[in-house]
Amino acid sequence: LHIEINVNGLRIELHNVSEELAERIREILEKVDDREEARRLAEELIK
């Protein structure tokens, strides 16, 4: 499954994740104000 999410102008592509996991990642990242911090957090979440 390939999912693309957009959060605060940051486009993140997720591969091989469930829709539920992608939604949780999006919800978490929406709470982060700083774009660079959101990017770093996204990288950690999808490892």
Rank of each mutant, 00 (worst) to 15 (best):
L1H: 12
L1F: 04
L1M: 13
L1Y: 02
L1R: 10
L1K: 13
L1S: 12
H2F: 05
H2K: 06
H2S: 08
H2Y: 05
H2T: 14
H2E: 03
H2N: 09
H2M: 09
H2L: 09
I3P: 02
I3L: 07
I3Y: 05
I3F: 10
I3D: 02
I3T: 05
I3H: 05
I3S: 03
I3Q: 03
I3W: 08
E4K: 03
E4C: 11
E4T: 15
E4G: 02
I5C: 07
I5S: 00
I5G: 01
I5W: 00
I5N: 01
I5Q: 00
I5Y: 00
N6P: 02
N6M: 06
N6W: 01
N6Y: 01
N6K: 03
N6S: 02
N6G: 02
N6C: 11
N6I: 15
V7D: 08
V7K: 02
V7Q: 05
V7T: 02
V7I: 15
V7S: 04
V7N: 08
N8S: 03
N8T: 01
N8G: 14
N8P: 14
N8R: 05
N8A: 09
N8Y: 00
N8C: 09
G9S: 00
G9A: 00
G9N: 06
G9D: 14
G9F: 00
L10I: 15
L10H: 15
L10A: 14
L10R: 10
L10V: 15
L10N: 15
R11W: 11
R11N: 15
R11D: 12
R11P: 13
R11S: 14
R11F: 15
I12Q: 01
I12H: 01
I12W: 03
E13A: 10
E13W: 09
E13Y: 09
E13C: 14
L14V: 08
L14A: 06
L14G: 02
L14R: 00
L14M: 08
L14H: 00
H15E: 04
H15G: 03
H15T: 06
H15S: 05
H15A: 03
H15V: 09
N16W: 08
N16H: 11
N16P: 03
N16M: 06
V17Q: 04
V17C: 03
V17K: 02
V17Y: 05
V17M: 07
S18E: 04
S18I: 03
S18N: 08
S18P: 07
S18K: 04
E19V: 15
E19H: 15
E19Y: 12
E19M: 15
E19K: 14
E19F: 14
E19P: 14
E20G: 10
E20Y: 04
E20R: 06
E20W: 04
E20F: 03
E20D: 11
E20H: 14
L21M: 13
L21H: 08
L21S: 07
L21A: 10
L21N: 05
L21D: 11
L21P: 00
L21Y: 10
A22E: 03
A22P: 01
A22D: 01
A22S: 05
A22M: 10
A22I: 14
E23F: 07
E23M: 11
E23W: 07
E23H: 14
R24Q: 11
R24N: 09
R24V: 12
R24P: 00
R24E: 08
I25M: 05
I25L: 10
I25R: 00
I25F: 06
I25H: 00
I25G: 00
I25T: 01
R26F: 08
R26K: 13
R26M: 10
R26Y: 08
R26A: 06
R26H: 05
R26W: 06
R26C: 02
R26Q: 07
E27D: 13
E27Y: 02
E27F: 02
E27K: 12
E27P: 01
E27N: 13
E27M: 09
E27I: 10
I28F: 08
I28S: 06
I28N: 02
I28V: 10
I28R: 08
I28E: 08
I28Q: 07
I28Y: 05
I28K: 06
L29K: 01
L29Y: 10
L29A: 05
L29C: 01
L29E: 01
E30K: 08
E30V: 12
E30D: 09
E30I: 13
E30N: 11
E30F: 08
E30H: 10
K31T: 12
K31A: 11
K31D: 10
K31H: 13
K31C: 07
K31F: 10
K31E: 11
K31W: 08
V32K: 04
V32S: 10
V32C: 04
V32W: 09
V32T: 13
D33H: 13
D33G: 13
D33A: 12
D33L: 15
D33R: 10
D33W: 13
D33Q: 14
D33E: 14
D33K: 14
D34C: 04
D34R: 06
D34H: 09
D34N: 12
D34I: 07
D34Q: 07
D34G: 09
R35N: 13
R35W: 14
R35D: 10
R35G: 13
R35V: 14
E36F: 05
E36Y: 05
E36A: 08
E36L: 08
E36W: 04
E37W: 03
E37S: 10
E37F: 04
E37M: 10
E37R: 11
E37N: 09
A38C: 06
A38W: 02
A38N: 04
A38F: 06
R39Y: 11
R39W: 13
R39L: 15
R39C: 13
R39P: 02
R40H: 11
R40Q: 12
R40P: 01
R40C: 09
R40W: 05
R40N: 14
R40V: 09
L41T: 07
L41N: 04
L41P: 00
A42G: 04
A42H: 02
A42M: 11
A42W: 08
A42S: 06
A42K: 01
A42T: 09
A42E: 01
E43C: 15
E43K: 04
E43F: 03
E43M: 09
E43L: 08
E44M: 08
E44I: 12
E44A: 11
E44R: 05
E44H: 11
E44Y: 03
L45Y: 07
L45V: 11
L45E: 07
L45C: 06
L45G: 02
L45N: 01
L45H: 05
I46K: 03
I46G: 04
I46E: 03
I46L: 13
I46R: 02
I46D: 03
I46V: 13
I46W: 04
K47T: 12
K47V: 11
K47Y: 07
K47A: 11
